[in-house]
């Protein structure tokens, strides 16, 4: 079987690298990772949150899954200009990946290409954020630290984390003296009758809790933190503000909503508390959480969240 040879070689390669880095870690202690063997340079990000984390750490990934869609949503990002699109996040092109010869895969969704297949090409660093039992926000911080540790970029990660903590505290301090409304955070759907709501288990819900605000949607949500509801269900919280995340479909969706009798009866519509906020990755990493905190801060400064 000729076909098996390169695969076997790949295994040997991985084994040696893992062994060496383990040796290095033993010899130098983990904090001195930078002094050890060179940190991986040829990295492929397998989903949007890992891409986001790598960019934040100042890396330029060799390949990015779903790059085209990511660019459409996030705009032109300098660090990704030379990256290669490796296909869908759930089916990155294995032949292309083998051709690119990466030395590390970073995955955060934990779904998609089976690890057995990816490991023939390079080791997989898995840094899950969603779907676990604890807080997504803590998981996101852990994931960032984990990736930074592997890349020898601890300082960059700690700087970002410190900045993020500071921003959260600032927002919290601004919130504390004021009487604020609870918020619905949603992506309205095209049919004008439903919206996706972010609830418990979501990164945004954790940020809201952290800064001392209340999520008006407290119902059941998926393990990934979202729920799909008819808009009639949004009448429960009379005082709430309705924040919706801009996306290419929101304009059409809002037009559909404007024609709806139920939408017009909702308290936040009647009292003009419908606020748009810039695009946020639906399942983002810590940088998305930080961006959301910044959005909350500017909303506070505009007085959009104050109770009347």
């Amino acid at each position: 079987m000729v076909g098996h040879r390169p695969e076997a070689r790949g295994h040997a390669c991985v084994g040696r690298r893992t062994f060496l880095s383990a040796l290095a870690a033993l010899a130098c202690g983990t904090s001195a990772a930078r002094a050890g063997p060179p940190a991986p340079r040829r990295i492929v990000a397998l989903d949007a949150p890992s891409t986001e984390m790598l960019v934040t750490l100042g890396m330029e990934p060799l390949g990015v899954a779903g790059l085209e869609g990511y660019r459409q949503a996030e705009g032109d990002i300098a660090a990704l200009r030379n990256s290669v699109d490796v296909g869908f996040f759930y089916e990155p092109n294995l032949e292309l990946l083998q051709f690119l010869k990466p030395d590390l895969f970073v995955s955060s969704f934990g779904i998609g290409a089976p690890a057995v297949l990816l490991q023939r090409i390079a080791p997989v660093l898995s840094a899950p954020i969603y779907g676990g039992s604890g807080s997504s926000h803590e998981a996101a911080a852990g994931a960032l630290r984990r990736i930074a540790g592997e890349m020898g970029r601890r300082d960059e990660a700690e700087t970002f984390l410190a900045g993020h903590e500071k921003r959260l505290s600032t927002v919290e301090e601004k919130m504390r003296p004021r009487h604020l409304r609870p918020v619905y955070l949603a992506s309205p759907l095209l049919d004008g009758r439903h919206a996706i709501l972010y609830g418990r288990n979501s990164l945004f819900d954790d940020v809201l809790r952290r800064v001392g605000m209340r999520n008006a949607f407290d119902g059941q949500s998926s393990p990934w933190g979202v729920a799909n509801l008819g808009i009639g269900r949004l009448a429960d919280e009379r005082e709430a503000v309705f924040l919706y995340i801009e996306s290419p479909v929101t304009e059409t969706a809002l037009k559909a909503l404007d024609e709806s009798a139920i939408w017009k009866t909702l308290p936040f519509v009647k009292e003009k508390r419908v606020v748009s906020i810039p695009y946020l990755e639906m399942y983002g990493a810590l940088p998305t959480a930080d961006r959301f905190a910044g959005i909350l801060e500017s909303l506070l400064d505009r007085g959009a969240l104050d109770a009347g």
């Binding site: 969704f109 779904i111 998609g112 996706i196 998926s222 990934w224 979202v226 729920a227 799909n228």
Partner: peptide, 9 residues
């Protein structure tokens, strides 16, 4: 319709 990313797989 749930917006679950696992739906892609």
């Amino acid at each position: 319709a749930s917006g679950d990313p696992r739906m892609a797989t």
